Simulated scan of single mutants.
Amino acid sequence: MVSTQSRRGDTRQRIQDVALELFGERGYEKTSLREIAEHLQVTKAALYYHFKTKEDILISLFQDLGRPLDELIAWAEEQPRTLEMKKELVRRYSKALSGAAPLFRFMQENQATVRELTVGESFKERMLKLTDLLRLPEGEAGLTDQMRAFTALFALHAGMFALNHVEGDLEDKRQAALEVALDLLTQAHAGHPVNGTH
């Protein structure tokens, strides 16, 4: 029973990986379920067992990414809004991103498609919640410092793309982007002591 479950899980994962690879190479619109099945060397019927449409595959990828983000948001909402909490939020977000780099590349290259699908809206809502958790107290910080706080998250996104064509180890690149993000947060909070009530 357990081995059947794990084989089933592996097939689902393989479908997601191959689909994402093809979406990245050819674009979402130009990739068919038939091509995904051919690359997997399975019948279309076998593919249908797991996913009925391309959108189903994409939705499943976003759901897999969404779960750790939802957990991160739930954790952060229970914490005092201190600089240390915000740094930990950014560290955890960086870790979640590292496992979803191909999906983020797809999002970058297929922005119009993502906007049209329901998954794009739910991802946007999560990003708004995360940026809100980094917000400095109203009236205590100017726009520049608010911008630094928000940009910390997006520095991690930018790092995935900007460093993509730079020589070096993936983990070193992730750490470099994380260091920039943490610096931005520290600068945003300099001169704005935040107590646990905010």
Results as ranks from 00 to 15, higher is better:
residue 104 F to R: 04
residue 47 L to A: 06
residue 36 I to C: 05
residue 191 G to D: 11
residue 182 L to T: 00
residue 62 F to T: 01
residue 132 D to K: 07
residue 186 T to G: 10
residue 37 A to L: 03
residue 115 R to I: 01
residue 119 V to H: 04
residue 131 T to F: 00
residue 25 E to T: 02
residue 4 T to F: 11
residue 183 D to N: 13
residue 152 A to Y: 00
residue 59 I to H: 13
residue 80 P to V: 02
residue 73 I to E: 11
residue 162 A to K: 11
residue 39 H to K: 15
residue 157 H to K: 03
residue 195 N to A: 05
residue 197 T to N: 09
residue 167 E to C: 03
residue 56 D to Q: 12
residue 141 A to S: 12
residue 8 R to W: 06
residue 175 Q to D: 11
residue 36 I to T: 06
residue 8 R to K: 09
residue 168 G to N: 04
residue 7 R to S: 12
residue 76 A to W: 00
residue 99 G to Y: 07
residue 57 I to G: 04
residue 11 T to R: 13
residue 170 L to S: 11
residue 116 E to H: 12
residue 180 V to K: 03
residue 77 E to P: 15
residue 154 F to Y: 06
residue 95 K to S: 15
residue 153 L to Q: 02
residue 177 A to I: 02
residue 167 E to W: 03
residue 190 A to I: 00
residue 73 I to G: 14
residue 150 F to Y: 15
residue 143 L to I: 15
residue 7 R to C: 11
residue 95 K to A: 13
residue 128 L to S: 15
residue 6 S to H: 10
residue 95 K to P: 11
residue 122 S to Y: 07
residue 146 Q to S: 07
residue 38 E to A: 12
residue 193 P to R: 07
residue 44 K to F: 11
residue 133 L to A: 01
residue 121 E to G: 15
residue 51 F to W: 14
residue 2 V to T: 01
residue 167 E to Y: 02
residue 172 D to H: 11
residue 101 A to V: 14
residue 49 Y to D: 14
residue 103 L to C: 07
residue 37 A to W: 07
residue 32 S to E: 02
residue 155 A to Y: 03
residue 174 R to Y: 05
residue 18 V to A: 04
residue 9 G to F: 10
residue 113 T to S: 05
residue 62 F to E: 01
residue 153 L to P: 05
residue 161 F to S: 02
residue 184 L to H: 02
residue 14 R to E: 12
residue 19 A to K: 04
residue 196 G to C: 01
residue 74 A to M: 13
residue 179 E to C: 08
residue 155 A to V: 02
residue 156 L to W: 08
residue 125 E to D: 10
residue 60 S to G: 15
residue 42 V to C: 15
residue 96 A to N: 03
residue 195 N to W: 09
